[in-house]
Simulated assay, not measured.
Amino acid sequence: MKTKLALAALALGAAHGAWAQPVVRPLVGMGFTFGGDTVARVVYSDGDSDKVRAGGLVAFTTGLEMAFSPLVSAQALIGYHVDGIAASNGDVKFDRYPAELLGHFRLTDTFRVGGGARYTAKARTRSSGAASGTVPSEDFKPAWGTVVEGEFTIGRNLGIKLRYVSEKFDSDTIPGAPKLKGNHGGIYFVGYFF
C-alpha cells in the first residue's frame, strides 16, 4: 500500500511539474469562412446578385497559446469576422467581434484536435447608399457558440486549421425577429511566434 501511495505521489509531482510551467506564445491568424443564414441579397444594375451571409467571409484573429505539455494546449483568442458587398452606389456589411477559449490535444506530431467556447459581441448589419433602402441596419445581442477544429502544424510556427462554429444571434433592434444562424465552416492560417 505504501508503495502505491509513493508511486501516486511521484506521478502527481511529475504531472504538477509538467503543468506548472506552461509555455506561452502569441499568435495571429486569418481565415476564410462559409455558411450561415443570408443576411442580405444584393442585386446589381446588370442583373447579377450576391449575398452577405452570417457565417462568411473573412476572419482575423490574435491571441495567446499556452502549452501545458507536449500533448495539451489552450488558446485564448479575440478577433474580427466580416462579410460584405461594396458597390459604387452603396454597400452592405455584417460584422462581429468573437472571443474564443479553446483546448487542444495533439494526436500526432503534425495534427491536433480541439474545441471550446466562442462569445461573439457587437454583431451588426450595416448598409449605405442604395442598399440602405432595402437592407436595414440591425444590432444583435451578444451570443455564445461552440467551436470544433482540427489543426495541421507545419514546423513550429505555422498551422492550418479546419473548423466548424455553431452560433445564433438574437436581434436587439427588431423585437420578435427570428434568430439569425451564423453556423459556418472555415479554413484558417495561423502564425505562432517564438
Results as ranks from 00 to 15, higher is better:
60 F>G: 01
16 H>G: 09
58 V>N: 02
163 R>Y: 10
118 R>E: 07
137 S>H: 08
189 F>S: 01
26 P>S: 03
61 T>A: 07
30 M>R: 09
33 T>V: 12
193 F>E: 02
83 D>S: 02
82 V>Y: 01
84 G>Y: 11
186 G>Y: 11
121 A>I: 15
30 M>V: 14
85 I>E: 00
108 T>W: 14
83 D>N: 08
153 T>G: 04
158 L>Q: 01
19 W>A: 09
19 W>E: 03
98 P>C: 09
51 K>E: 04
48 D>A: 13
167 E>W: 15
182 G>E: 05
98 P>I: 15
154 I>N: 00
46 D>K: 14
168 K>A: 11
76 A>P: 03
48 D>Q: 12
8 A>C: 08
35 G>S: 11
187 I>D: 00
14 A>T: 07
165 V>S: 00
193 F>V: 11
140 F>D: 03
2 K>L: 12
48 D>W: 12
78 I>Y: 08
106 R>V: 12
161 K>H: 04
118 R>Q: 10
115 G>E: 01
103 G>E: 02
9 A>E: 05
94 F>H: 11
92 V>R: 03
117 A>H: 02
127 S>K: 07
42 V>R: 13
69 S>W: 11
53 R>E: 08
135 V>S: 07
58 V>D: 06
80 Y>W: 13
151 E>L: 11
4 K>W: 04
134 T>K: 11
83 D>I: 15
17 G>Q: 14
32 F>V: 12
119 Y>N: 02
145 G>D: 02
143 A>L: 14
161 K>R: 13
172 D>E: 08
60 F>D: 00
49 S>A: 15
96 R>V: 08
44 Y>W: 13
171 S>P: 06
113 V>Y: 05
87 A>C: 03
183 N>Y: 07
131 A>E: 01
141 K>Q: 12
176 G>M: 08
35 G>D: 09
132 S>I: 14
188 Y>W: 08
157 N>D: 06
135 V>R: 04
126 R>M: 00
133 G>E: 09
67 A>K: 15
27 L>C: 00
193 F>S: 00
144 W>K: 03
